[in-house]
Write a protein that binds this DNA or RNA. Structure first.
Lengths: 227, 227, 227, 227
DNA sequence: AATGAATGAGCCTTCATTCAT
DNA sequence: TATGAATGAAGGCTCATTCAT
């Protein structure tokens, strides 16, 4: 019995065939290795999504870039869509705490915003996170979950904190224009523009984001500072 | 996050049900009819590209929306890619003249910028053209030709005109901060932000773009105006 | 503009590449050709489904067997599942009229059943239709729509007609056992068994279905007929 | 037809939630534990194969249902195919002895067949074994080894025994129709039909198999018995 | 010029099988 | 012995592009 006539289809020798190049680190435990793989997938996927956008990104490329098999991706993510959403969400979150300064700080509001600008340029505008901002703008309308998440976790919080800062500055007399508190977007706008500029036009005309943000703060605070 | 709304394709469900409706106007010449078809394709394609982005847009949908056969598209455009590039370019050009105010105008610069803001909100921020801005941000990195075109035809011209305005305002004493001329982006930033906001967050929190731009101009010109 | 930098991915020259072997019949109209193709797909799909069952059948194989491209199948059927259901349903229907004899016939009931048996053996047991019966048995539980359809269109109708015949035969005195009318399945059972036998065991031990059905009718009608 | 119930996979949702429950009996020897596992795999695999058929069954589901790891299956079976064949064979064998009554029995043949029918309904038609019959019908053509095995071990033996019974009945005058001995299939047919009916149509129209088999025996033995 | 049926390469996802632990 | 993470070859389905009509 055992060795029955094959149901006609030639079996193409499934399973691991060619054993990747010898594993680099030999000492890790299973869990560590898995975490490393997951991280590699996340990095690779972010890069691909940033480069091509959601639809044009191929899981094949992600797998190749992460140096894992295509199936491995599905051990970590349900499908392409949830991977995208999860990635886009989690990529910004760890940064939130650092970007929003505690509203009850000792120094001047201007100093706080200078610090914010510095962190933003260092951690967002000049890194892959900036491209993620662009990606959110690009894919947001087709991924309501992403737009929702961003509004809830990033935008509304960020603007609320910014508004609190502005109101503090108004109360202290640092800012003369009380209506600014109604549109904290105005304070953030150049920072966002800087991020988009870097993605699209930097090679046509480099932008000194630090200077631009300083000039913008000068405008808001009505003074002139030199770098 | 997990359970995101699928970016599923709604069936366009367009008018024409069965047989092609008898040609409306029989008097047109061949060339006119062709031009009409081409225009229909352009409109349809723009809508689809805006809704789905380049890769996710299907020529089938464009054809259905334009009420032409799929093959007809190829009588007017080489392929999907060149259609996209051509579209994105031509869609903005007719607007350029109106947006850039003549630098040698009689009234105050502030008035000129108020006028600019008004036109921008009416013609860009609240229309499909605003979505095209977002589309450029979304697809620019993958379509260097588009980024190039935009930088050359829109951005550099627009910023140059804006810089000229700023310098004029500085010379006239309307603007106190001479460094602003180095970064005309600052003046435009809230307008761009308004466009992006409308696409992504309008339903979470409506933005009064007119007011925001007025407050921004108040900031720049150091005065307070009421609507 | 037109000739933009490719978005990096090499385009693999889509569309019809190798033009099938010269079309056999050149004179057909489009609709005819389409109908032919559809028929070819149906034939091929039936063969494949019969040979492998639903899950193990590959659309690739169906396409190859039908000599069409894989995509062509989707011009005629929504997906594999609906193709399967549609096929299985429609394959038997055209035969129903011939299998169910009009209950008000002139000759004896035995003659009617002999005729039924003859048609059944010629048109079902020894043709692909017999395999479809087996396929229904095989896949029915996983395709409720198919079991439903078969019960409604084939089984209930067939058994009702059979019951009518039995009752007629009882009334006429041809059949002595009145309880038989409660279980028309008994009359049909050997015919079904014949079909299954041919699929599974014919090569182990050929079955003379005609003889078997005659003996069965002898049993039911209590007489002995010779072939 | 169109809108068929998807043969979607219900999540098995089995007991064991997290960590492996502490071994119930600690006294077993290694070999016993292994035999238990093997038995669990067999039970689970049978259930899955019956529910989905060979190709659509996933080893993952078998493993989960058997509460073993996927790899463990391969310690007991060479691959999916041999597991299937081995299962199907061994599942019926233990039943064979009970189904075939000793040909030299004291009572009437009719009594023997009544007893057979009773056992068949109790042990086959209304249990998982009945589904195995359907499984053999379904997968037999693609697994010649299974068809072979069944013909050799079940069909030919069963029919031979049945033929012996019939001949005995003829010799004793219990059965009047000598030709019945040529087609013992006729005697078994309604039993098989009952099994198939239960799988496919029971919910459309319940079948009283016991009654049907009694009526059938009445037909064969030319008498009328009441339940 | 216009059509739309046909094509087939490509992509997401699944799952039998392997093997390091 | 048992595990289950990892693999990668399919397979169902899509859609840009072609071309006979």
């Amino acid at each position: 019995m055992a060795n029955a006539a094959k149901p006609s289809r030639p079996k193409p020798a499934r399973g691991r065939a060619g054993a990747k190049a010898a594993p680099v680190a030999r000492s890790n435990h299973r869990a560590e290795r898995a975490a490393e793989r997951r991280q590699a997938i996340i990095e690779a996927a972010l890069d691909e999504f940033i480069t091509r956008g959601f639809t044009a990104t191929r899981l094949d490329d992600i797998a190749r870039r992460a140096d894992v098999a295509k199936g491995t991706i599905y051990l970590h993510f349900k499908d392409k869509e949830s991977m995208f959403e999860e990635l886009i969400s989690t990529a910004i979150v760890p940064l939130l705490g650092r970007l929003v300064p505690p509203p009850s700080m000792s120094g001047s509001v201007r100093d706080a915003l200078e610090a914010f600008a510095k962190v933003f340029i260092q951690e967002v505008a000049t890194t892959r996170r900036g491209d993620i901002v662009r990606l959110v703008v690009a894919e947001g309308p087709r991924f309501p979950a992403i737009a929702d998440f961003y509004y809830r976790e990033v935008i509304s919080r960020g603007l609320a904190a910014m508004r609190a800062l502005i109101e503090l500055a108004i109360a202290r007399g640092e800012i003369k224009q009380p209506e600014l508190a109604r549109f904290p977007q105005i304070v953030v706008a150049p920072a966002i523009i800087a991020v988009i500029w870097k993605s699209l036009f930097e090679r046509h005309s480099p932008l000194d984001a630090t200077e631009m943000l300083r000039v913008h703060l000068d405008l808001i605070f009505g003074e002139r500072r030199t770098t």
